[in-house]
Design a protein around this nucleic acid. Structure first.
Lengths: 342, 342
DNA sequence: ACGGCCTGTCGAATCGATTCCGACAGCGTA
DNA sequence: TACGCTGTCGGAATCGATTCGACAGGCCGT
């Protein structure tokens, strides 16, 4: 049961270093002894101890993934990021260490970063001003963010161009003749806290609305179906002329839909809904959602790729990638019709 | 930048062992030197190297969480388990190492288990016959399963009593006068592969249907809304007398609902739907789903608790816990009415 | 004043692997 | 035959922490 490298060496009648060389292949070992040693290894099912190897090599072959603490209600998009990261890491023979951070569990973050438990870190849910980013910068540990801060220069990141995508949604709706368009954002707390996508989406919305000469109203909305329902109830009451919604709030979508239905607005005949969402969500929605489909898993995988770059050549110029996928036309948008209440 | 324990010792003018003792507190250190050492530690921001500590102590303070590889479409229930595990682990100052396993990424599992990267493992998505379980048994590494095999004796597990819960759903529907009840199971592949919940739910259904003297039809269904829609389409065509569905397939629920709507069956007036789901899903559904609410996060946390027990006292008798929450009456079930088509 | 105890600290071994350096065997060549 | 070279292998240092045994000094007692 105690299978150390010395045990293997003893059984094979060689020294520990020779066993190590057949393990790592960093020096030639004659065919005969190589096979003898390999036989012993297979027989006892030996695997080198990961801690010892990490200590000696200075590399843990592990990446940290910092996720928001309220894992219970992760967005579909966030989930896709996690899935993409995990899959890509597995393909690269890397393990993923999870760290629920940003809330009360600060210890986890510190353990992972300061204790050198990982070779690099991937950060999600970036704020425009993010102290985790500044701490990582100081620590010198390679890291990549999914999302970007207000000043992303000098670091590697991948992000979705929410500003541009929401603007394109507005353009699409305006092309269809809609003159009163609403943006259903993420929660007010998130936006106020400087959450990147929420703030960028809003500014993109404001800009596009102005450019197209339509009127726009932007509202915040919690991340549940119930929130979406309440939000749209209020929206329709306060702004009855609104005939279209653009949103980046996936979780609220079912509620948005129910509120519209209850108000007698049928999608896409009476009312149009579009936005930016994970492909899976958009297709599974009813009616299928016209939306900019975020390649979520690819983004997660790309984050791993960038992180590996930073780990292997920390002095190289950091790189980044901004995703701005086209809008997939489905069944949730149509030409504007005048609301019956007018 | 290179902050080793020797560096701290040198700066404080003591030996490495003394620094270690103020770190671990395993031997008394005089007030004066303790404060001097602590000052140096705070000044340079020193943290002990986790790999070195793990090597020496033989414990990594990390647990492995083996998840199904297709992380893209994890169930809400599965997500809740993961969230519960992560939260509970963080509270216990444990880190979580993710391993997408069961598919192509076998290397991840082996690295984690054989390389002693973790102190214990939590396994999800258990099959009635599960070779990961047998491998873990052989390895001697402490582990806990969420779900249980056909022969769960001698190991620690937590599970949901799908058989009992589905039976209770059937009872509830029979009480309401429904005489033709369908079970919408998980996918045929999963059930055929010996997936525990699917098989236990089916046997519970068959038993309950027999006991209550109603007729039952059980069908399998993929894990998407589209699958659910297609499944119910076929079901209604083949068995028009069915007036109620019990299901454990959360992801198919929106599709089930749409198919019913399209067929002119309104819930709960014309048709009843119930089953077992995560509370969040059941409440967010429309209409709110009468269902047995699985305390998902608590189950994940309980798995961590049991794992810690096995790690601290490996010789103790393994324990287990079967969850069988009551059915929460909401708005998706009602008295049976004769289908109009008859 | 001296032996013994207790407190605080140090030196060195240890965990399990990697890797540099030197040794040695076998072979070819002058 | 002697020399040098190449291909293999063993010895020992090293990574960064923990921990056991030893020891120096201060305090007490008789």
């Amino acid at each position: 049961m105690v299978s150390d490298i010395g045990e293997i060496a003893r059984r094979a009648g060689v020294s520990r270093s020779t066993v190590s060389y057949v393990l790592t292949g960093k020096r030639p070992v004659s065919e005969g002894t190589r096979r003898r040693i390999q036989a012993v290894i297979d027989e006892v099912g030996y695997r080198p101890n990961a801690s010892a190897r990490a200590l000696r090599e200075g590399r843990t072959h592990t990446v940290g993934l910092v996720i928001p603490p309220a894992t219970g209600h992760l967005t579909g998009v966030q989930l896709g990021f996690v899935a993409g990261v995990v899959e890509a890491a597995a393909r690269a023979d890397l393990d993923v260490l999870l760290s629920p951070s940003g809330g009360e569990h600060e210890r986890s973050f510190e353990r992972i970063v300061d204790g050198r438990r990982v070779d690099g870190v991937i950060l999600m849910e970036i704020r425009l001003e993010d102290d985790r980013v500044t701490r990582l910068r100081r620590s010198g540990l390679p890291f990549v963010t999914i999302g970007r801060t207000a000043q992303p220069h000098g670091m590697s990141w991948v992000d979705v161009d929410y500003a541009g995508l929401i603007a394109r949604c507005v353009g699409h709706l305006a092309d269809l003749g809609h003159e009163h368009i609403a943006l259903v954002n993420r929660s007010a707390e998130l936006v106020a806290a400087g959450y990147g996508p929420g703030n960028r989406a809003r500014s993109g919305f404001v800009r596009a609305v102005a450019e197209r000469g339509v009127t726009g109203v932007d509202v915040c909305c919690g991340d549940t179906a119930a929130d979406g329902e309440a939000c749209v109830d209020q929206l329709l009451a306060a702004h009855p002329r609104v005939t279209a919604i653009a949103t980046l709030n996936e979780a609220a979508l079912p509620g948005i839909h129910r509120a519209l239905q209850r108000a007698g607005r049928t999608v896409p005949h009476d009312f149009s809904v579009t936005g930016v969402a994970a492909p899976h969500w958009a297709e599974d929605f009813h009616p299928p959602l016209t939306a900019a489909d975020i390649p979520i898993e690819e983004i997660g995988a790309q984050a791993v790729t960038l992180l590996l770059e930073r780990i292997s050549t920390p002095t190289a110029e950091p790189s980044h990638r901004l995703y701005s996928p086209p809008i997939s036309l489905r069944a949730s948008t149509g030409p504007a019709t005048r609301p019956r209440t007018l």
